Computed example of a mutant assay.
Amino acid sequence: MPDKQFTESFASLMEELAALEHRRWAHWQRYVHEKGERRPDGSVVLPAELVARWERLIKTPYEELTNEEKDSDREQVQKYLPILKRWLQRVRGENEGNA
């Protein structure tokens, strides 16, 4: 695959992944907002136990997470794999066509 074509293909991959990341983030934000209490000024107050849990997770390296916590991360990564697989197949196919 010529460099220009690869760069364009990679840019397309980046946009598709960015769109998925935005959907993932929006889903998470809906979840966080639903767990909180909306105040008249528009702010959201979260329960202390959720904040404590999330702060613990923020400080915990992946290797030290429980299997259940790792499964949650794996579930999120699985959403990216079909996009990456399609892109790799396309790039491989185009490279084989040039061989």
Rank of each mutant, 00 (worst) to 15 (best):
N98Y: 14
N98G: 02
Q89L: 13
A99R: 15
I83A: 01
P40R: 08
E15K: 15
A11G: 00
A48D: 08
R92I: 04
E64M: 05
P61E: 07
R24S: 10
L20H: 13
E8K: 13
M14D: 09
K85S: 09
Q5F: 04
T66I: 06
L81I: 15
Y80A: 03
F10W: 07
W54G: 01
E75D: 11
V45D: 09
G97A: 14
R86F: 05
R23G: 03
L81R: 03
G93W: 15
R30T: 06
R39Q: 10
E94L: 04
W25N: 15
L46M: 10
V77Y: 12
Q78I: 07
G36V: 02
N67T: 08
Q5P: 00
V77F: 05
V77S: 02
P61I: 12
V45A: 13
T66Q: 04
R53H: 10
E16D: 12
L46F: 13
R53L: 08
G42A: 02
A18L: 10
R38F: 01
E8N: 07
S9H: 03
L57Q: 06
V77K: 13
Y62N: 01
Q5I: 04
R92N: 08
Q76S: 12
A99D: 02
W87K: 12
E96Y: 07
A48L: 10
P40D: 00
T66S: 12
E21A: 08
E15A: 10
E21Y: 14
V45R: 07
E69W: 06
R90Q: 04
S9M: 11
L84T: 02
E68Q: 13
R39S: 01
D71K: 13
W87R: 12
E49D: 15
V91M: 11
P40E: 03
T60L: 05
E68K: 06
N98E: 11
K79M: 00
L20S: 12
T60E: 05
E21V: 09
S43E: 04
H27F: 01
F10K: 13
V45T: 08
Q89A: 01
E96M: 07
K70E: 06
Q78E: 15
V77A: 04
L46P: 02
E69T: 11
V77D: 05
Q29G: 02
A48M: 02
K79W: 10
K59G: 08
Y80P: 00
D73M: 08
R74D: 02
F10V: 04
K59W: 08
E15T: 15
E21K: 09
K85T: 02
R53A: 06
Y62F: 09
R23V: 03
P47T: 09
V45Q: 10
L84A: 05
L50R: 14
T66C: 00
E15N: 09
E16K: 15
Q29V: 12
V44S: 11
K59N: 11
R30H: 09
Y31F: 13
M14N: 14
K59H: 14
V32A: 06
A48W: 07
E8Q: 11
G42P: 01
N67C: 02
K4C: 00
M1C: 05
A48Y: 01
S9Q: 03
A52F: 10
I83F: 01
E64A: 14
K35A: 06
M1E: 09
